[in-house]
Design a protein around this nucleic acid. Structure first.
Length: 363
DNA sequence: ATCATTTGACCCAA
DNA sequence: TTGGGTCAAATGAT
């Protein structure tokens, strides 16, 4: 009988943590109140995050000794738990585990709602169901043939509330996208842990800056070591991209450390978009642009950028050095805050090492 | 040309 | 026999 694997645990923890973070973000959005759309979108993401976590827990409960339905989730009527736990039907084709969840469609946001669950599916059928207003659609994993992935799902609009879809999953993914997804979830969790560590380190650095004021040359071996080792020479983790998957222009390591460091600098609460979304954006934009952070600047709220940049800029040499290394675009920032931009940055569109006064002589 | 979706036909368990 | 699930040819999209 299938047990709760470590990656399952990681994903559940990650989903719940994300839900918590999004809820916090929503709280911040409400004081002062922001757009209704932004709040609605956040609510959808929060609900989706909890849905995913609960689905996983429900699935695990179903596969385990005691199938106990979890709040809001509906274990499928077929196969029954007794059928699933008994193997005496050896002649019968082995029935796959099933689990359902209800997904609310978020209209007007451009999202496809229940169909976008992180996997790629191929529709292979649709049936009118007796007594149901809406037809049931049948999907199988896109990689069923190439990778023998047996995952399928059925999607049906509920009669009572057409904005809610019931999605019934059957079978587990055994394809590459599943493994990549697992890896991504684990990385996200690791990044969160790392963030906490780095935040603590930042507080130590803040204390040091009281001794070494901003915009001074690194004057001690200790400070240089901190800049060189802690900020820019982080060991590179190995990510193996399987055939058929094109790696992003920035390696996941780069993007991960980017956010870790952004958080390290202390601006995580000012970023409107979550770290995972950024990773998603980076991955998705590979075919569109070759420029690092090509479209990324448009994902950050300009008002937050203001805070980010002023915060980063005034943090001194380490932050400037860091920004120069990541090559952050400040086009968007300039559009909205040209008057507040430090003189050194006014004539440039992309922050480079030579744009940083303290680094100018070194490149 | 390739891949995805649509949809009527077919299969099979109940 | 019937309803639900799947197949596969036709069609559509890129």
């Amino acid at each position: 009988m299938e047990k709760l694997g470590s990656w399952d645990r990681e994903i559940v923890i990650s989903e719940l943590a994300q839900g918590r973070d999004l809820a916090n973000e929503l709280k911040n959005q409400l004081q002062p109140p922001k757009s209704r759309e932004a709040c609605g979108l956040l609510l959808e993401k929060i609900l989706s995050s909890y849905d995913n976590a609960l689905s996983l827990l429900n699935c695990m409960a179903f596969l385990g000794e005691e199938p106990s339905p979890i709040n809001g989730l509906l274990p499928s009527a077929s196969p029954t738990s007794s059928e699933a736990s008994l193997d005496h039907v050896s002649k019968k084709r082995k029935t796959l585990a099933k689990w359902s969840k209800q997904v609310r469609v978020c209209t007007g946001t451009g999202l496809e709602g229940p169909l976008d669950d992180g996997y790629s599916w191929r529709k292979y059928g649709q049936k009118d169901i007796l007594g149901a207003k809406f037809p049931r659609a049948y999907y199988r994993c896109t990689h069923q043939k190439t990778q023998r992935c047996s995952a399928t799902k059925q999607v049906q609009r509920t009669d009572v509330d057409p904005s809610i879809f019931e999605v019934t999953y059957s079978g587990r993914h055994s394809c590459i996208q599943e493994r990549l997804k697992q890896k991504k979830e684990i990385q996200r969790h690791e990044a969160q842990q790392k963030m906490i560590t780095l935040k603590n380190e930042t507080q130590e650095l803040d204390t040091k800056e009281e001794i070494f004021p901003p915009f001074s040359f690194p004057s001690t071996p200790i400070e240089s070591d901190v800049v060189g080792n802690e900020f820019f020479s982080e060991p590179v983790k190995e990510i193996n991209f399987s055939a058929g998957y094109s790696p992003p222009f920035l390696s996941p390591t780069t993007s991960e450390s980017y956010f870790s460091r952004m958080n390290d600098i202390g601006i995580d609460h000012n970023l409107q978009t979550s770290e995972s979304d950024f990773i998603e954006i980076i991955s998705n934009s590979t075919s569109v642009t070759n420029s690092p952070f090509g479209d990324l600047d448009f994902s950050i709220d300009p008002s937050n950028l203001n805070t980010c940049f002023s915060h980063i800029y005034h943090k001194g040499n380490k932050a400037a050095d860091y920004l120069a290394n990541v090559g952050v675009s400040i086009t968007r920032y300039k559009e909205f805050h040209a008057s507040e931009l430090p003189a050194e940055l006014k004539s440039i569109n992309r922050l480079e090492a030579q744009d940083i006064p303290y680094l100018r002589g070194q490149v």
